[in-house]
Computed example of a mutant assay.
Amino acid sequence: MKNKELIIGIVIGLITSAVGLLLTLLFFGKGNSLNDSLQIALNRGVFTKLVSMGAMLNLAAFFLFLKKNQDTRAQGVLIATVIVAIITLIIRFI
C-alpha cells in the first residue's frame, strides 16, 4: 500500500512539473505558440531555467499532501522533484 502511494506521488509530481513547464512557456515564452516558445527557449539556452521554474509548482502539491497528512505521497512528489532536477542538470551540461 505504501509503494502505491509513493508511485502516485511521483506521478503527480511529474505531471505537476510538466504542467508548470507549460504554464511557464505560456507566460514567459516569446513565440506565437507553445512549439515556437519551446524552440526559442532551446535555441537561447534557457530551457533548463524554464523547467526549473515549472517544477516550482510541485511546492503546492507537496504542501497540499502534507496538510492532508499524506506523507508518502508528499515523499513521492519530493522524489519527482529530484528526478526533474537531475534531468535538468543532465540537459544543462550535455
Rank of each mutant, 00 (worst) to 15 (best):
T24F: 01
A85I: 02
G45Y: 01
F63W: 07
Q75N: 14
A60P: 01
A60F: 08
L89W: 06
L57S: 10
T88D: 09
Q70F: 02
L66F: 00
A85P: 02
I86F: 08
L34W: 03
R44C: 00
K30Q: 12
V11F: 11
L57E: 02
I79N: 09
I15N: 13
K67C: 06
T16R: 04
V11Y: 01
R73N: 14
L59M: 10
I12D: 11
T81Q: 15
G9F: 06
I90T: 14
F28D: 07
F27D: 08
A74I: 05
Q75E: 07
I7F: 10
A41F: 00
A85W: 00
K68F: 09
E5V: 12
S33T: 15
I91Y: 11
I83V: 14
L25R: 07
R92G: 03
I40Y: 03
R92K: 15
M56Y: 00
A60D: 05
L78Q: 08
M53N: 07
G54F: 01
S37Q: 02
A60W: 04
R44G: 00
F47I: 13
N32A: 11
S33G: 00
F27M: 14
L38K: 02
N35T: 12
I94N: 13
L25S: 06
N32L: 13
I91F: 08
I83Q: 02
I15S: 14
F28G: 06
L25K: 05
L89V: 09
L50D: 02
K30F: 06
A80H: 05
N35Q: 09
T88I: 05
K30P: 00
S52W: 01
K49C: 01
F47R: 00
L42D: 02
I87K: 03
K68Y: 03
I91W: 06
L14E: 08
F65V: 09
G31R: 04
K2L: 13
T24S: 13
T48R: 04
L6G: 09
D36F: 03
F93T: 11
I40S: 04
N3W: 02
S52M: 08
G29Q: 07
K4A: 10
L34Q: 03
G76W: 04
K2Q: 15
K4P: 01
V19R: 05
V19L: 11
L38T: 10
V46P: 04
N58H: 03
T81V: 06
G45P: 04
I86A: 15
L14G: 11
K2N: 11
T81L: 08
R73A: 09
R44S: 12
M53G: 13
S33N: 10
D36K: 01
L6N: 03
R92S: 14
L78D: 10
T88A: 12
R92T: 14
T81F: 11
G54L: 01
A55K: 04
V84E: 07
L34F: 03
V19I: 15
F63A: 09
I40E: 03
S17N: 14
I86T: 11
S52P: 01
L66Y: 06
F93V: 10
N69Y: 05
L57A: 14
I91S: 12
V84H: 05
I40Q: 05
F65R: 07
A61Y: 02
